[in-house]
Amino acid sequence: MKVKYSHGEGYFPFAKGDYVTVVVRYLHIKDLEEELYYHGTVTEIEEDGFWCVLDDKTKEEYFSFLDVENVIDGDRIPFFVGTTKRIKGKD
């Protein structure tokens, strides 16, 4: 499904149960301390966003498409202008 992210349009090819990385801030920051992304499992998809159980399993969080830069596979993390393979326990 095509969606409007905070800095442009993109596709959301994920379904319930998919493990994802939600990139809230990465490409459009000035300080590396402001990087922000989460890993979790999609539980519900709505027209304007989706619900995700985060890795710590303590809470489910709603992400509006307009509040995130992108959503990518959960085994990837943002890196420069693309992504790289995630090393477990390093992020």
Score class of each variant (00 low, 15 high):
91 D>L: 09
8 G>D: 07
4 K>N: 14
88 K>V: 06
19 Y>N: 06
31 D>E: 14
66 L>F: 10
89 G>E: 11
76 R>G: 02
88 K>Y: 05
53 V>R: 04
13 P>V: 06
23 V>E: 00
55 D>Y: 08
28 H>F: 15
59 K>L: 05
30 K>P: 01
43 T>D: 09
39 H>R: 14
18 D>P: 05
46 E>K: 13
27 L>F: 08
8 G>N: 04
11 Y>L: 10
32 L>P: 14
56 D>C: 09
70 N>D: 14
33 E>M: 09
2 K>P: 00
11 Y>M: 09
47 E>M: 13
64 S>D: 10
47 E>G: 00
84 T>D: 01
8 G>H: 07
16 K>Y: 03
11 Y>T: 10
48 D>S: 11
55 D>M: 11
8 G>A: 11
62 Y>C: 12
64 S>L: 14
90 K>M: 14
88 K>Q: 08
8 G>Q: 08
37 Y>S: 03
50 F>R: 07
1 M>E: 09
88 K>R: 15
5 Y>H: 08
71 V>D: 01
70 N>I: 07
51 W>G: 03
6 S>L: 15
29 I>Q: 02
75 D>I: 02
6 S>H: 06
36 L>A: 09
88 K>L: 06
5 Y>D: 06
74 G>I: 04
76 R>C: 06
60 E>L: 13
72 I>V: 10
67 D>E: 15
58 T>E: 15
21 T>H: 08
18 D>T: 05
22 V>P: 03
78 P>G: 08
60 E>A: 13
19 Y>C: 03
19 Y>F: 15
40 G>Q: 06
25 R>H: 14
27 L>K: 10
77 I>G: 00
56 D>L: 12
32 L>T: 02
41 T>V: 15
11 Y>G: 04
88 K>D: 12
84 T>I: 12
55 D>A: 13
39 H>K: 12
39 H>N: 13
65 F>D: 03
61 E>L: 07
17 G>A: 06
30 K>E: 12
6 S>G: 00
53 V>M: 11
24 V>H: 02
77 I>R: 10
75 D>R: 02
56 D>M: 12
72 I>K: 05
81 V>K: 08
31 D>P: 09
23 V>Y: 00
52 C>P: 04
60 E>Y: 01
47 E>N: 13
26 Y>G: 05
79 F>L: 00
12 F>L: 07
66 L>Y: 10
48 D>P: 01
16 K>H: 05
45 I>Y: 02
81 V>L: 14
46 E>W: 04
9 E>W: 12
77 I>H: 05
42 V>E: 01
86 R>S: 00
32 L>C: 10
66 L>I: 15
88 K>C: 00
23 V>S: 03
45 I>W: 04
19 Y>Q: 03
75 D>L: 01
2 K>I: 07
